[in-house]
Design a protein around this nucleic acid. Sequence first.
RNA 1: GGCUAGGUGGCAGAGUGGUUAUGCAGCGGCCUGCAAAGCCGUACCACGUCGGUUCGACUCCGGCCCUAGCCUCCA
Length: 474
Amino acid sequence: MQIYNSLSGHKEKLVPIEPGRIGLYVCGITAYDDCHLGHARMMVTFDMVVRFLRMEGYAVHYVRNITDIDDKIIARAKKEDRDIGSIVEDCIQSMHKDAQALGIVAPDEEPRATLHMNEIITLIQQLMNKGYAYQQAQGDVLYSVRRFADYGKLSGKTLDSLRAGARVEVDPNKKDPLDFVLWKKARPGEPAWSSPWGEGRPGWHIECSAMSMRCLGKHFDIHGGGLDLKFPHHENEIAQSEAATGEIFSNIWMHNGFVQWEDEKMSKSLGNILTIRNTVQRHHPEAVRYWILSTHYRSPLRYDENELESARRSLARLYQTVAANSQETGTSPENDDRLAPIVEDFIDAMRDDFNTPKAISILFQLDRRIRQARQDGESDFAHQGALAMKRLAEPLGFLRSAPDEFAAYQPGLPAHLDHEKIDAMVSGRVEARRNKNWARADELRKELFAMGIVLEDSATGTRWHYQPGQGTSE
RNA sequence: GGCUAGGUGGCAGAGUGGUUAUGCAGCGGCCUGCAAAGCCGUACCACGUCGGUUCGACUCCGGCCCUAGCCUCCA
């Protein structure tokens, strides 16, 4: 198993600290708003990582934190005149719903900053004792970046180059402009905890150091998160943790790439986000997963409505294969070694830094073999192939629905379309067809198509579905 | 300005010093009242640009152009 380590800049063999066990910490959400597709990518990516490592036999201890105290949460509470707690709870609930929709395996632990104040304070105390932190005139406790020789090793920057291009406003109370807050002095009306440095709350970075060490120990295997956290968040985590413990913090750092919207990063600050909930309303959740995993996790991923539809169709093909070959048809040969090379190729692709696009392509090679076998009358082999396909789809989180359920999936109708009216038109056409009034039937079909409704006549009746982007009215 | 990734066929997206990626779309056939869905088959002088190395480069080296990202809260 090889994983690209952001810290070293190349792929490295995965060598667990404890044989057979992997400690994985991923930076989760800040609970102040709905999750968007960037969060979806983070969740799906590490879900795939966890699933595959477990498939490989590792006992993975997966920790994904929640930031439940932060400037943005406080700001929103003020703006909406709401209780911080209720905002946090709502956001967490919403995030869990999104994760569930996407079929994300729940983390083993989901620590929250406010529930680990003791660990946070202890860690800051250690940094104070060792001289890595100081309290400035206003009462904030800051980390002194100049004291940590390795500062910048993750982001590949030097303190001087950072300073040269810094757009940060210079705070005269800081020894270095890049010093960051460990403990923020309480302001009136803001939530606060008592500490040796007065009432206050933790800075953003310290919680992850404290909680990851609490859950996984001072030195663990993999730390992950979105690429936007690489600097300064992860850089600061390393500085805090390694300064405090004198040990290596995380062996491997994994960063997933951005989701882009029309060649720009999708982010809150640019206001070009799409929420998970909104997306899942229009596209099957598994298609969303497929779309995310059809690009390598480190590459940028452009949002494109057509690609999501394309993902659905690709998946539909695999589903059809599974459905057509799910029945045991006879005595299967003990084990067919014709499948082994394909399975091996799949595993190899995944072992190479989680090359999911390649792995998916091998799923389609398998698909081809199965269909071929079916045509050749080798239905036992086809059945075995279908079983293998389901097994290989597991780490990707594909093929988790019943095939007919997936086929029948309907995205939510846009508001301007009236379900009853459509049904009426469809029945009208069924009636016209019964009378062999083809002209009328075709006319109705055309009208429906213009609304984006596509019909399917079959022996068992007429089905219809809404197809975004089809027809004229959008 | 400093630092990172990238530029592959209509779209998306892997990979490799000389051999088919893969999916979607397209095209042809079967099926269908006609369609759709499904099934079968299938084309595409694809590898940013200019040089270099090599028997041979899309794949290695160098220059150039372009794109995205980080240097500020952000998955």
